[in-house]
Simulated scan of single mutants.
Amino acid sequence: MSGLTGRTIALAAERRSEEINTILHKKGATTVHYPLQGKLSTHEDALIKDVETLIFERFDLAVFTTGIGGRTLTKAAKDCGYEETFIQALAKTPIASRGYKTRHWLTEIGIEPLLTDEDGTMEDLIDKTCTTRPGRTFLQLYNQDDTTITQQLEKTSTEVYTSQPYTYEPPEEAVVTALADVLRKRQVDAVMFTSKKQVENLLAEDESAVVSACNDNVTAAAVGTVTAQALFDAGIQTVIQPPSQKMGAMVVALDQYFQANPKT
């Protein structure tokens, strides 16, 4: 019997939620959905500027931190008739890539990165990047302006051009409050996160209650090292994290955890 049979799982993810719902239901679990990522927002003028800059200016290294960022820039290039030229420019530029989703995007457009992370974190990738001491660096930022990453690259690069292809609008306040309340009342057996942003949005609502619940009898599960680390940093002691950064693998890991800990 599956360890998830009869369990209630809260999902904080919005993208591909139907896929993970199906997997969990086949395992006998009930799911409740609280999308915490927020709505993706892009700015066309800034995207076109970033695309043209990468095409028409020379960079010694281009650092891509998320698959969404890479895909958003590629779509912007396509929309303004630059897709082929954009991909050609990328092919001529040494690439540093963080995360399997970013590498998957690069594979789709036929590009092999020069540098990749070992553990899904920017820290590992930046360490490798700084050893190359690039001249001009194109840096695709996360959702938020990460000044720490920019400053680290500026120490070894002659210039760092920052691109922020997208931002996330805050999730609906009622949704965040509802999930925090469910956790406070211990009405779910586990809560699944697929991004650091989801963790941050929930902790901003009531960090102490969330941490208390996840250290009591609500199990936290995360896809990716960065997501898991955000939970650990908040003080959550146990986080179920699969070796593969995929949602299907997270379900398997959670199933195995509950089989080994049936009274949890």
Rank of each mutant, 00 (worst) to 15 (best):
K197S: 15
V188S: 03
V176Q: 05
K246D: 13
P242M: 01
Q229G: 09
A249I: 02
S163T: 08
P165D: 10
Q198V: 02
A230K: 04
C214S: 08
L179H: 06
E172A: 06
I236N: 04
V226T: 15
S163F: 04
D233N: 02
L203N: 05
I236V: 08
C214G: 05
V211F: 04
V251H: 04
V176I: 09
M250P: 02
E200W: 13
Y168F: 14
V211W: 11
P171Y: 03
S212E: 15
D216Y: 14
K197H: 15
S163Y: 00
Q237K: 15
L202Q: 01
L202V: 01
L183D: 05
M192N: 10
Y166Q: 14
V175Y: 07
L202E: 02
L202H: 09
A221I: 00
E172D: 00
Q245D: 13
K197G: 15
Q187R: 15
A213C: 07
T162S: 13
T194A: 12
Q198E: 14
A230D: 01
P242F: 01
Y166G: 15
G235N: 01
Q164S: 03
K185V: 06
A234N: 12
L202K: 02
G248K: 09
V176A: 10
T194E: 06
A180K: 04
Q245G: 10
T227E: 05
A174T: 14
P243I: 11
D216M: 10
G235D: 00
G224V: 01
A228P: 01
E169Y: 14
E169W: 09
L203A: 03
A249L: 03
V226S: 12
M192V: 13
V239T: 09
Y168D: 09
A234C: 14
V182A: 09
Q241R: 05
D189H: 00
Q187G: 13
M247Y: 05
A228Q: 01
P242W: 01
N215R: 09
V223S: 13
Q237G: 13
D206E: 06
V218G: 01
V210S: 00
A213G: 01
A222Q: 00
G248Y: 11
A204M: 04
Q241I: 06
E200S: 14
M247G: 07
L183K: 04
R184C: 08
V188P: 01
D233T: 08
L203G: 09
T225F: 06
K185P: 13
S208E: 06
P170R: 03
E207V: 06
A209F: 01
A213R: 07
E172Y: 00
K196S: 15
A209I: 02
A174R: 11
V210E: 00
L179P: 10
P165A: 09
L179G: 13
L231R: 09
E169Q: 08
T227D: 08
E169H: 15
M250L: 03
A204Q: 01
V191W: 04
L202D: 03
V226R: 12
K185G: 07
V251M: 02
E205S: 15
A249W: 11
A234L: 13
F193C: 08
V239D: 06
I236W: 10
Q245V: 10
D206K: 10
T194R: 11
T225A: 07
P170K: 11
A178T: 13
A249D: 13
V176D: 08
V191Q: 07
G248P: 03
A209H: 02
S208R: 09
Q245L: 11
E169S: 03
